[in-house]
């Protein structure tokens, strides 16, 4: 879905969202609630400039619009893979963005993510995956790495990886697998404004993803193991 259609469907009451290349931000209204929007298009790789810019936009919302919910609409093929970004400490820029999102959360901003294009590894970790709740459009794609690259790194033949991808929720890219594992709260279909309004109304507390993953059968051990380490007497 192109950005204009997406924004019109999310904010039928209107929005002021300005694009600058692959980046956009602004605010939209859904059933009377102002929502800050920060995002990217075109599966863009997130390098240090973009991470920095998004962090600045989050800080601006915290400063100027206390309590305003934030919707992250980040479409990314992952972190930018470049020597120059590593040289300048891209992990520090990504962490800074993550800290800004967490600051907003702690200051009472509801933070939601909606994966509308792609969401991949580092670019996903520092953005929508850190929201209070992350949602996805059904045709969005979520993954860690493409299969050929994975095959080279793990030394497992591509044919074997392809075969496993057909059945394993842990392994295969895809929004449904991430939903089963608890990282995607729900898929948004039909009336997107209603989906958004509903998500804004649900109370959030803590990180529910392990419990969701267990309940949905996608991750059987994460909650149990974390709980044991937290509570076991030593």
């Amino acid at each position: 879905m192109d950005l204009t259609s997406l924004l019109n469907r999310l904010f039928p009451d209107g929005h002021e969202i300005a694009a600058d290349g692959v980046y956009f931000d602004g605010a939209g209204r859904v059933f009377g609630t102002e929502v800050a929007v920060i995002g990217t298009i075109d599966n863009t790789p997130i390098g240090i400039e973009l991470a920095f810019r998004m962090a600045g936009a989050v800080l601006e919302v915290v400063r100027r619009h206390p309590g305003r919910p934030i919707l992250l609409l980040v479409d990314t093929q992952g972190q930018r893979l470049s020597h120059r970004d590593e040289l300048l400490g891209i992990n520090g820029y990504m962490a800074h963005l993550a800290k800004c999102i967490d600051l907003a959360r702690r200051n009472g901003h509801r933070v939601l993510g909606l994966v509308h294009g792609q969401a991949v590894s580092g670019g996903f970790l520092a953005t929508s995956l850190l929201a209070d709740r992350c949602y996805a459009l059904p045709d969005a794609e979520i993954r860690v790495m493409n299969l050929p690259a994975m095959s080279r790194v793990t030394k497992i033949p591509l044919e074997r990886l392809t075969e496993l991808s057909a059945s394993s929720p842990v392994f295969a890219p895809g929004v449904e697998n991430y939903r089963r594992m608890g990282a995607i709260t729900a898929l948004w279909e039909g009336d997107l404004a209603a989906c958004l309004a509903e998500a804004l109304a649900v109370p959030t507390d803590g990180d529910p993803r392990r419990a969701l993953g267990e309940e949905r059968g996608g991750r059987q051990l994460a909650r149990k193991v974390a709980d044991r380490v937290r509570h076991d007497a030593v």
Binding site: F124, V144, M145, V170, F171, A172, N177, Y178, M181, G182
Partner: peptide
């Protein structure tokens, strides 16, 4: 990468 989705989450 052997358990990519679970690892990322």
């Amino acid at each position: 990468l052997h358990e990519a989705n679970a690892g990322l989450i």
